[in-house]
Amino acid sequence: MNTSFAYTRRGQGGGAGTRRIIARALLVLALAAVLAACTAARFAYNQAPQFSYWWLDSHFDFDDTQSEQVRGDIETFFAWHRREELPAVAGLLRQWQAMAARDLTAAEVCAQFDTVRARLTLTGERLIDPFARLAPRLDSAQLEHLQRRQARSNEEFERDFLRGSPEQRLQRRLDQAVSRSEMFYGSLSEAQRGLVRRWLAESPWDAQRTQAERQRRQADLLQTLRRIQAEPAQARPALQAHLQRLQHSPTPGYQAHSDAGVRHGCAQFAALHNSTTPEQRQRAVRELQSYERDMEVLSAQR
Rank of each mutant, 00 (worst) to 15 (best):
P204T: 09
R163C: 05
L170S: 14
Q168V: 14
D206P: 03
A132S: 12
Q218E: 06
A23V: 01
Q112P: 08
L134Q: 11
W96C: 10
H264D: 09
G13K: 03
R193A: 06
A219C: 04
S290D: 09
E156K: 10
H257C: 13
S181P: 00
R94E: 11
A25V: 11
L174I: 15
E155H: 13
D64Y: 10
P250D: 05
D160W: 05
L221D: 00
R102E: 08
S165M: 00
F78N: 02
Y7I: 00
G14R: 00
Q244L: 14
Y7P: 03
R226T: 04
L26I: 04
Y185T: 02
L162M: 12
E182L: 11
A100I: 11
Q218G: 00
P87S: 00
A135T: 09
A233W: 15
V285E: 05
Q69V: 12
M295Y: 02
A300Y: 10
R159I: 10
R226W: 08
A256M: 05
R20Y: 01
R83D: 15
P49F: 06
R133N: 05
H257T: 05
G124F: 02
S299M: 07
D61E: 14
T277I: 14
L174K: 06
C38N: 15
Q69K: 13
L222W: 00
Q150G: 07
Q168C: 04
A111D: 13
C266D: 05
R263P: 00
L222Q: 01
F77Y: 06
L104Y: 07
L225C: 04
A212K: 01
T115M: 11
R217N: 11
I22W: 11
R286E: 13
P136N: 09
G11T: 02
D175G: 09
W205F: 09
L298W: 12
E296T: 12
A79R: 14
V297N: 08
E156V: 07
R227Y: 12
Y53S: 04
A141W: 08
A79F: 15
F161G: 04
V297S: 02
F78P: 06
A41N: 02
Y45E: 02
Y45M: 08
R216D: 01
L225W: 00
R302Y: 09
R173V: 15
I74N: 08
Y45D: 04
R71I: 15
